[in-house]
């Protein structure tokens, strides 16, 4: 822990910390409720980025979100927009119902790997295959967070979880699932990208990807998927900084970052 022995806190400089010089503050589209997520969790970073985009695009009244079952089950406590909470795995069915009734609105789901790629695989695949005008934000942290660290469909080979205590054995527990690559094959899917929020550069790229996906939604271009390779320091049994390193060294080699499918033809 980087506390300094001879600790001197520098007070805020009133000459600089003035509204006119402000270059960043929490987006107004986030509520004031403190996030319940563990220290260093990528969930809240992605919440923040999404709401920055919503604020910048001025679409707070035009967007309806669907929260999943998983750590982000309470997403609607933080995202200051109309939202529905879905049964485990069914976010894209719920979002389909909303979008079909509200063809002029923007609809997104926010889902984890268990919700999207295990129990909800059928709903995910078919909503994508119908080319529903929905943005899915997919947080892949390779573990079931809310139920405290069981194996997920995206858990890496040999990775230790509470239900793969000797490391994921692919011969009996199957292989880590690259759902984004799978979905990218479908003609109804317009944009698939894999990003992360473990460095400042990646945070900027993820925000850009979210903005691009929402713009495609506005144009009615079909299903968009933004996967965010994220962390779970608590269940990975790491400090937040160690978890960022794990993303860089272990997750990204298997889940490479970048666009998988774009409307421009990648």
């Amino acid at each position: 822990m980087s506390t300094i022995p001879n600790f001197i806190e520098i007070p805020v400089n009133p000459e600089i910390a003035q509204k006119e010089f402000e270059v960043y503050s929490k987006p107004s589209t986030l509520t004031d409720k403190p996030f319940h997520y563990c220290p260093g969790c990528g969930h809240s970073t992605v919440h923040k980025l999404l709401m920055e985009v919503v604020e910048e695009m001025g679409i707070q009244g035009d967007i309806v979100g669907v929260a999943p079952v998983g750590c982000s089950v309470f997403a609607y406590d933080y995202l200051d927009i109309d939202m529905q909470q879905a049964a485990h795995g069914r976010a894209l069915a719920v979002a389909t119902g909303i979008r079909r009734m509200l063809p002029d609105k923007l609809v997104f789901t926010y889902q984890g790997d268990g919700d999207l790629a295990a129990i909800g695989t059928a709903e995910t695949l078919h909503a994508a295959n119908r080319g529903e005008n929905i943005l899915t934000i997919f947080i892949n942290n390779a573990v079931y967070g809310m139920t405290s660290g069981q194996m997920a469909p995206t858990t890496l080979e040999k990775m230790v979880t509470t239900t793969s205590p000797f490391g994921r054995d692919v011969s009996t527990q199957g292989y880590p699932l690259k759902i984004s690559e799978l979905l990218a094959m479908l003609p109804g899917v317009t944009y698939v990208t894999r990003q992360s929020v473990h460095t400042t550069a990646n945070v900027r790229k993820t925000k850009k990807a979210l903005r691009k996906a929402i713009e495609l939604q506005q144009e009615g271009k079909g299903f968009c998927l933004v996967e965010v390779v994220s962390n779970c320091p608590s269940n990975w049994k790491m400090t937040p900084l160690q978890s960022q390193q794990f993303i860089q060294e272990k997750m990204i080699p298997f889940y490479p970052l970048g666009d998988i499918k774009t409307p421009e033809g990648k």
């Binding site: 309806v64 529905q84 879905a86 069914r90 069915a93 719920v94 389909t96 909303i98 078919h126």
Partner: peptide, 12 residues
């Protein structure tokens, strides 16, 4: 999926 689409649509 049907009943969850109903849930979403009824919510509107």
């Amino acid at each position: 999926a049907s009943i969850n689409m109903v849930y979403g649509a009824a919510g509107t």
